[in-house]
Simulated scan of single mutants.
Amino acid sequence: MMKKPAADTVKGKVVYTQHCASCQGADGLRVKNPGKANGYMFPALWGTDDTYNKGAGMYRILKSADFIKSNMPLGATKENPILTDKEAYDVAAYMNQDSHYRPEKINRSSDFPD
């Protein structure tokens, strides 16, 4: 069985900068709807303000890579993706690095019991 390559967060940062930052912000902290008190045009990927937590489905690299591949960047579809599988995998790993703060899910350790 062929070993699958590990995700590359350095390449993921390049993909993020080229394809994601224009919507998600260079800092991943979101783009708010202009003129509205609440709401986002694009949600926060990390930070303290309305991001998904460690434990959410999007925090799982394969789940987020699949979503990214089918929906990102803006204009991509499952039938006509813009990113390759590897690019989606790398950018998902970059987004979900522990160095990008996000809240910890309560009782996360019980998500996948032994």
Rank of each mutant, 00 (worst) to 15 (best):
V15A: 08
T17S: 12
H100G: 08
G25E: 07
D85C: 08
Q24E: 10
N71G: 02
A37D: 10
F42N: 09
R60W: 02
D49E: 09
L74S: 14
G28S: 08
N53D: 15
V91E: 02
D111F: 09
P43W: 06
A56V: 03
W46G: 12
G12W: 01
K78H: 07
K54Q: 12
S99L: 08
L74W: 11
E104Y: 05
S64Y: 04
K54E: 09
Q97L: 13
L83Q: 02
D111L: 14
R30W: 05
M1T: 13
P81K: 07
N53A: 15
K36C: 06
N107Q: 09
T51C: 08
F67Q: 13
D8Y: 01
S70K: 13
H100S: 12
K63Q: 11
R60E: 11
S64K: 08
S22L: 14
A7M: 06
M41H: 09
S22M: 13
N71S: 06
D50Y: 03
N38L: 15
P5I: 02
K13A: 15
A6Y: 02
F42S: 12
D85Y: 04
Q18A: 15
E104W: 04
K13V: 03
M1Q: 14
A56N: 05
V14T: 07
S64Q: 08
P34Y: 12
Y94F: 12
D27G: 08
D111Y: 09
P5E: 05
V31Q: 11
M95S: 10
N107A: 13
K69D: 06
E87S: 10
M95N: 06
K105G: 08
L29P: 01
A76E: 04
N33I: 11
P73Y: 06
T48A: 15
A44F: 00
K3C: 10
R60A: 14
K86G: 13
N33W: 06
T77N: 12
N71Y: 00
D50R: 09
G57E: 05
E79F: 04
M72A: 14
I68V: 04
Y16V: 06
E104I: 06
L29Q: 05
Q97V: 04
D50I: 02
T51Q: 05
D85P: 02
Y101L: 11
N80V: 04
P34I: 15
A88L: 03
